[in-house]
Amino acid sequence: MSARYAGDRTTGFASPAADAVEGPIDLSQILDLKNPSRYPVRVRGATFMGRGILDGDILIADTAGSPQVGQLVIAWAAGRVLLAELQKRDKAWWLISGDDTHPPLQVDPARDVEIWANVTSVVREKA
């Protein structure tokens, strides 16, 4: 069967590559999708075009890390799920809009503005 031949088990001449098979590249491994803290999230809107993120892109979000300046994050704000940039001002964290259409929004779980995950990778199904 086709799935069982990986460049190794030839019938006539022995494959010189038999001990060197590495298999195809596994993107789920590279994106670490089996890690319990990794979640795929779909982007709606294009305000982060400047950072190379388009409408319909899939982001790989990681819920395990800690906040970093300049990091793209998935945030929850008053019942909405947002993609925003994280900045620090006066010892507080702020959500920054991608194209300055919205004023900065202070991260404050007491007011239902909180970071859900850091964005670690972008996947575009059709380039």
Binding site: Y39, P40, R42, V43
Partner: peptide, 15 residues
Amino acid sequence: HYTTRLEEIMEAQAW
């Protein structure tokens, strides 16, 4: 099915 079907994952509004 947020984590098991690609067409149903969580959506985030680019802000």
